[in-house]
Design a protein around this nucleic acid. Sequence first.
DNA 1: TTGATTCATCAACCAATTTTGATCTATGGT
DNA 2: ACCATAGATCAAAATTGGTTGATGAATCAA
Lengths: 106, 106
Amino acid sequence: MRVLDHPLQADQARILCKALADPVRLTVIEALAGGERCVCDLTGELGLSQSKLSFHLKLLKEAGLLESRQQGRWIYYRLRVEALHSLQAWLAALAVRCERPASPCP
Amino acid sequence: MRVLDHPLQADQARILCKALADPVRLTVIEALAGGERCVCDLTGELGLSQSKLSFHLKLLKEAGLLESRQQGRWIYYRLRVEALHSLQAWLAALAVRCERPASPCP
DNA sequence: TTGATTCATCAACCAATTTTGATCTATGGT
DNA sequence: ACCATAGATCAAAATTGGTTGATGAATCAA
């Protein structure tokens, strides 16, 4: 099953979580879940200043959540679904560790 | 399927991610994945000062990742697996939104 | 009741992130 | 070549977060 691929280091999970732990970045992520978009689209759609958006896009990209391509003057960003799956897998593994059979009563 | 229960608001997901986005808190989480522990156990095991640990435990609890119970002088903390599942579900829902069929080529 | 132990809380300090506005680079149109 | 547009980058200011050491509250044992 897809969710169990990619066992992730705790530190990589932390980096992904950190990237997701900001309201601006979360709106960006959700906008991009709808498909690839160029920066100027996003500034309009989300009402963000250009440099603010650029700052967060860079951060998300460095965390591995986004990738981008250039087309003429425009730069298109899109979500890396693999990153979402990796984090899911890490959480799943953690949850499994919690669900060991209860020890015989104390 | 368990992973698809509990549809989560983006903001709750953000709060969970924020709580997970710190190295100290992540070691606490991983220690508690091994089972319930009292605070003084954790300070020893993780080599953290008492007030530092207490600060992070509070934060994790407020985020919904931990719960605690008192027994005599000791306070035992444990992971809330539901929180992990919620976040997993949120990620899964996001990933699904990304995987819509590609639009006919441009 | 006294003293020891466990844990929470507080204030002061330090460190990391975010925001803003300005400037810089690259691309494309004329 | 010149100008307009898209987006990255930078430094300073503002904000948020984490750490420390001290103090406080609750529990228990003697």
